[in-house]
Nucleic acid binder design. Structure first.
Lengths: 219, 219
DNA sequence: AAAATATTTGACCATTTGGTCAGGTTATAA
DNA sequence: TTATAACCTGACCAAATGGTCAAATATTTT
């Protein structure tokens, strides 16, 4: 028993201030992502976030000061992940491969980080009051390059002329994010059972094939 | 001046109790749909709804008793509209026409009733706590018939084998509803300008064509 | 016309909520 | 070892919120 105490003490002592901050911020961010996903910015309470993080409420305020501030951090963190996945769009010359990888990556993100997607969806649905600036600067810029890629493919007759490249992009976003944002509906319509990993891989392939055919490519 | 008073009095007197109830309930439902769309069930306040309806808060409680009850009515009302539009799916034998009309109808609903779509999205994102029963009964049943139609088309080689019919259905839902749920993002990425009616018709055609090609049909 | 029924609304209340703060503990620098 | 800075948290508070209610007004029925 004394050993346990000593070990606990030692472990506790070895946590540097830096590590403590790092760990707690992460714990809070993960908890906040879940709570914001379920209740939105206004609906989420700092108490819920604190309970989810198994920390006293004051601790949340100590690290992030205000709820709005914490919300911003959550959204920023999601955007970083999304942008990373989005890079694959440029790394392939052939639209078949580019689309295959991009859609695949977006599906994977919907599977691995569904709460982030939901927070984002919530933010946009409620009028993007917090992210408007970032949308019209960072995201707009990225979308423009994406649109350029697609238009080049169209000019080179590598894919069908879809009219406005945005329409294709939105279809990809909407379809892939559906599996995160509407996962409860998907679950209910799958006889109440969450998709297994194997099932999800199937759907991913099907989505990829749908998108490829939609631009005139044979999967 | 006396005439105006008399006219006002007469008009006021002529409103029957029945009409009063009908009108006020509609006013409140429309206001509530907007507020719930922006803030979700928990985030929306009865005060906001009252202000949007230009009525005292007590009046909202008089007609709908609780906020949750009002929320239920809003969701029910949306589902009715959606089901109506969805009927077109069965009225055509040829998939080309069926898909064309269904996707078109869903796009039109996204344009004409974006707030309803947002409330629905919010409800699903937050785990469908209120609509779960209706989802697993009414919606499930409708989806099953839809899936049957699609599978028949596949068996008859009228469309490509998409694997799971749900995947196609979800793509249609997600893509069409994107123009309602994510309209602020669409606006921002359209250089801050909301899509005009003409532009929206263009996008609608493009979406229809994308979906048709995705199942191997030439638009 | 008067009784009965339905609508309207300001005042009110218990509860919840975001946020503060003082006083304590723990780690680190001197 | 001691001083300093960072971390921790229970207690607290002002504001907001969902909902109630009684009294006033308007319509309908008898």
């Amino acid at each position: 028993m004394g050993n346990v105490m000593v070990a606990a003490k030692a472990r506790s002592s070895s946590r540097s201030k830096e590590k403590i901050r790092e760990e707690n911020e992460l714990i809070i961010l993960i908890a906040a992502e879940k709570v914001f996903a379920k209740h939105g910015l206004k609906g989420a309470t700092t108490k819920q976030i604190a309970d989810m993080a198994i920390l006293p409420k004051s601790n949340i305020h100590y690290y992030f000061h205000t709820k709005l501030n914490l919300y911003r951090y959550v959204l920023e963190s999601i955007l970083v992940d999304w942008m990373k996945a989005a890079d694959t769009f440029d790394t392939f010359d052939e639209p078949r491969e580019a689309i295959r990888y991009y859609v695949g990556a977006k599906m994977d993100l919907s599977r691995t980080r569904p709460f982030g997607s939901k927070v984002w969806a919530n933010e946009i649905i409620s009028g993007a009051p917090v992210m408007e600036e970032i949308l019209s600067s960072r995201l707009k810029k990225w979308v423009d390059t994406c649109v350029n890629s697609i238009n080049t493919w169209i000019e080179l007759k590598k894919i069908v002329n879809v009219g406005d490249a945005h329409t294709l992009l939105y279809m990809i976003w909407a379809t892939t994010q559906h599996y995160a944002d509407f996962e409860y509906q998907v679950k209910i319509l799958n006889n109440g059972k969450r998709l297994t990993d194997a099932e999800f891989e199937e759907k991913k392939q099907q989505v990829i094939d749908l998108v490829l055919r939609s631009v005139g490519l044979n999967p």
